[in-house]
Design a protein around this nucleic acid. Structure first.
Lengths: 204, 204, 204, 204
DNA sequence: AATTAATCGAGACGGTACGTCGGGTCTTATG
DNA sequence: CATAAGACCCGACGTACCGTCTCGATTAATT
């Protein structure tokens, strides 16, 4: 997953690779995946949409899965939530970011691929972790800030917090997706607030 | 999703459908899916494994996805957790049940299909809800028991509890799956205990 | 070919066969064959067109070929040409009859089937002879009349006459068919006259 | 019918079609047809025998019939009969050629396809004329030679001659085919002699 | 009148081939 | 060299038909 598309070492001879191609292909791949789903996701369509020959794709990626994996990886947000001054504020911000990410094509594709990939053997299978990584990275920042401020909690608690937060968002996105209706920013903010309120206080 | 394979309402004419066929096909479909994954899941193989002609399958299901969806639906557990006497005990039981379900082939297939299906239009898309329904049904029972006992909490809180519980399990299963290692009953019990402890108390 | 549809010996118990069915099936078979050709000729279509269940067909005929063979055999004309008083007149009459037969659906189907059947092994293959038999029978009558009148010719000559007459008609029908245009009675009469004139005088 | 398999006009980009493929496919098609007959003639078998993917066939031909039609067309003989010095000799030669052609797989297939094609709409239907064309071309040469030599006859007479010759051969081949027995060169020569003797002299 | 035996319609069944489509490879002509 | 174009082999797709089978519903001839 951490592979880049161009492991070619250094040779400088011949026609250089078309600069924009990789980006256009990532974009095309994610759009196709988002619109048609896995079973409707074809290399021919990606090539056509990106205005590129099929062989160009196969010069850079081994196969369909690898292209899709890298496309998702490239769009992975390094979603550092703004420092709002409080743990709760940071968590809400992080939750909103994650909601937005998963509701966009690239983020949604990430989720689907992660689920698919989990059935495959190494090394493709490790791709499932991307989804976790995206979240873990953001959480790490938030947790560090909280610790600095003295808003302390056990490490185990933070792990559970992370899982519940991420999981609840995932499940909610799944529900929203299946309803095929647009979701407003307000609704997202409301859901984020309710979720963070719950995970910070528990059932009490 | 709640469709059965045979929407033909009343007509009694003609040779009746072979009784065992549907079950054998569900079994074969889930086995194939579990062993070979989505990309290795072929109708010919399912037909062969079930000892059935391909046309028999297509007389009952529109296409591959629909067969798979119904196969999963048919294996959907009505996981009523035992009454342990306390809300916390019931939740742990429910969590353990859900962990087991998702880690088995049929449950795992359910999850994958739900995610896939969320990208498709109605009515197939509604299949994503099966996953939610399985959980909701179980939660309803637990919630009712708690209310009877007087262990009260707001409805909104129960909703959040349900989402976090379900979500956290989902995310953990995803992680476990991607590690391709066997998971012991003890580990599941531990994870369930930690999870329930967290969602009932929050960060505090 | 000389088989009838019902080789069932004598038993008289049970529901008797629906009387009209056989005729309707012959009709339907020839119409289907004429319209769609061999590759488009299906038992389901024949059954539907005749308003009959498929099993009814298979109770009477072993398979598709046998049904078709019997259908053609049943429609075989016993085209005794009228006695016109002269050999030439009789031949023209016979030629006109044959033209009409081959240009109608049943006759055209006969021709097509004869050609198809010639590729198959015994006993179906013998069906190709039906086409020859139809002609031979008619010729026998005409020849006998001519001999009575004293219009004599060698037997070999009559054989050649028969072949050329029948062959020329066949080829002409093939040409006419491929032009997909209606053919008037006058045109048929003209063609018959020219043909008989030629075969009776030769190039001379 | 005069269509080649590759109506693609000019573009030179992309991998060129494998050169030998068309020939190998024609060969394979005719062999399969000859050995198994129409009902045993399958595209998969043709592809396998030609060492070619099925899609390669469908890139070049619309369907089974079209492939077979072109295969036959490609093997169509331009049977110019030798100049024997006399009209009668030329006609005998032509008749022998035609007998041989129709008794071989390719020629026999031509006949069958022509009959089938006559039921189809344009342009496939025009294929019925191939059979006529093969004959017409040869006849034209013979007729021209005869005219040069002064062996004159009216044009109408030549038309009738052509039809009778061709027709009689067709009918005889049909009979021979249905008997499934080998035919010696002597028998063909005898039949040709008798036929030509008849059509040149008539009943007299 | 009850029983028996066959036919009828409908349509599901196990197969096999169809013609289509997509994956990943290969081969050309053009940058 | 990389590229676009696109043909190639393979194998699964979903459809159509064959000839078989199993129903419930007739329809006589035989008890």
């Amino acid at each position: 997953v951490s592979e880049t598309a161009s492991p070619r070492p250094s040779s400088r001879r011949g026609r250089p690779r078309t600069p924009g191609a990789e980006d256009r292909l990532f974009q095309a791949a994610l759009e196709e995946y988002g619109e048609r789903g896995w079973s409707g996701f074809t290399m021919d369509a990606v090539a056509r949409r990106a205005g590129v020959g099929k062989s160009t794709i196969y010069l850079r990626w081994r196969d369909k899965d690898t292209l899709l994996a890298d496309a998702v990886e490239a769009r992975r947000p390094n979603a550092q939530p703004m420092d709002t001054g409080t743990l709760r504020g940071d968590l809400e911000q992080l939750t909103i970011n994650l909601f937005h990410f998963y509701l966009e094509p690239a983020g949604w594709a990430t989720l689907r691929i992660a689920v698919d990939a989990a059935s495959y053997p190494e090394p493709l299978g490790r791709f499932a972790d991307v989804v976790a990584d995206v979240h873990r990275d953001a959480m790490a920042v938030v947790t560090a800030r909280a610790t600095e401020r003295g808003e302390r909690a056990g490490e185990a608690a933070f792990t559970q917090l992370s899982l519940s937060l991420h999981g609840s968002i995932t499940v909610q996105v799944l529900n929203l997706r299946s309803q095929h209706r647009p979701v407003s920013d307000e609704e997202i903010a409301d859901r984020a607030a309710a979720l963070v309120a719950f995970v910070t206080t528990g059932l009490s």
